[in-house]
Amino acid sequence: MRELFRRYKLLLLAVVLLMATVLLYSYNLRHKSTTTFFERAVLTFAEPFQSGIDQAVDAVRNVWKNYLWLIDARQRNIALLQENRELKAKLLQVEEISQQNQRLRALLAFVDDLDRPALPAQVIGEDASNWARTIVIDKGTKAGLSNGLPVVAAEGVVGRIIKISQNSARVLLITDASSAVAALIQRTRTRGVARGQGQDLSVEYALRTADIEVGDLLVTSGMGGIFPKGLPLGKVADIEKGQFGLFQQVKVETMVDFSHLEEVLVIVGKDQ
């Protein structure tokens, strides 16, 4: 192929120059109002080549336009995807704020029913090991809190403060094995002591002859000086009465879902 090109390169060059001259001449003739016979012959001869060149130019132009359109479409898609991600993030934020507002409204309603001064706090830590059931809240002595104050949620009793620092406090949950709360069955006023069992509660010292049924509500009795009277603790889930002994075994499911606890109230005042 190279040898053939070397042998006929002068001829090929002459043909290319001739075609270029003819095409240029044909292009100039197209803009003249009148032409001679020779000029018409040149136009007729050059027409197929001119048409091919026009088609080639149009094809290149279309490819370039399509390429630019694809580049622009890709940039628009990237911008739309980014905008979509931002809108989804904002929607999630709005949903989170909406859920938080619902929880806070429930807490405020609980405060109104409680008729006690209370301080809201956020749960910022959790210890749910086999040895301890505690949470950490973001309020401490700087906010006026102290050891022993009761902590509640909109659903019921959470626990009491056992350790405190300037900006945080550790709360012992009522489900901890070392936690004990004076309680009573709301329906029959049967007294007992609610003790933590890790996940749930048990009622100790409930007489075997006492009227207790599954579904009964267990509330604080107000005795002991920590929790106000009438705060929900849980509902009776199971009862066992042995043939011997003075007391029956009562299992209680807590009202508060400690695995999803985010906001709490610390009761800081006495009865008004």
Rank of each mutant, 00 (worst) to 15 (best):
K235E: 10
L108I: 08
S146T: 13
D113L: 13
A14H: 09
L265W: 10
A41S: 11
T209I: 04
G225D: 08
A89E: 14
E263L: 12
V123S: 04
I137S: 09
E126F: 11
I97G: 00
E47R: 06
I226G: 05
G234N: 05
A128M: 14
S168T: 12
G148C: 09
L13V: 05
G196P: 05
Y27N: 11
A41E: 04
L108H: 02
A41M: 13
V171D: 01
E204Q: 14
K90I: 07
L149Y: 10
L233I: 07
A109C: 01
L201N: 08
I71L: 15
G225S: 09
S26L: 04
S178P: 00
L173I: 07
P48T: 07
A128D: 07
F49D: 03
F227M: 02
F258E: 13
S98K: 09
V256L: 04
Q122D: 15
V193H: 01
T35V: 15
V16T: 14
V94C: 07
E47H: 06
T188F: 09
E95G: 00
N84A: 15
V111G: 02
R189V: 06
E39I: 05
K163G: 03
G52M: 06
P120D: 01
G222V: 04
F227Y: 13
V193L: 15
L107E: 02
L217T: 11
R160A: 15
F5M: 12
V157L: 07
D112G: 02
Q55G: 07
V15K: 03
D138T: 12
L81Q: 13
V111T: 12
I226R: 05
D58N: 14
A169K: 08
K88F: 12
L231P: 01
F258A: 01
V22C: 11
Q248R: 10
K235C: 03
L173N: 06
S221K: 02
T209H: 12
N77K: 08
K163P: 00
G144Y: 08
A132Y: 08
A73K: 13
Q100R: 15
E3V: 04
L265Q: 12
V42S: 11
R189Q: 15
V42E: 02
L107S: 11
V252W: 10
M255E: 14
A79V: 09
D72I: 02
V250H: 02
A177M: 10
V16Q: 05
G222F: 06
E96K: 06
L108R: 13
R170P: 00
E39S: 07
K163M: 13
N77P: 00
Q50P: 00
A41C: 06
N84E: 12
Q55Y: 10
I71D: 14
A210T: 09
G230E: 09
Q199Y: 12
L23W: 08
F227Q: 00
D113S: 14
I212L: 07
F38G: 12
R30P: 00
M255F: 13
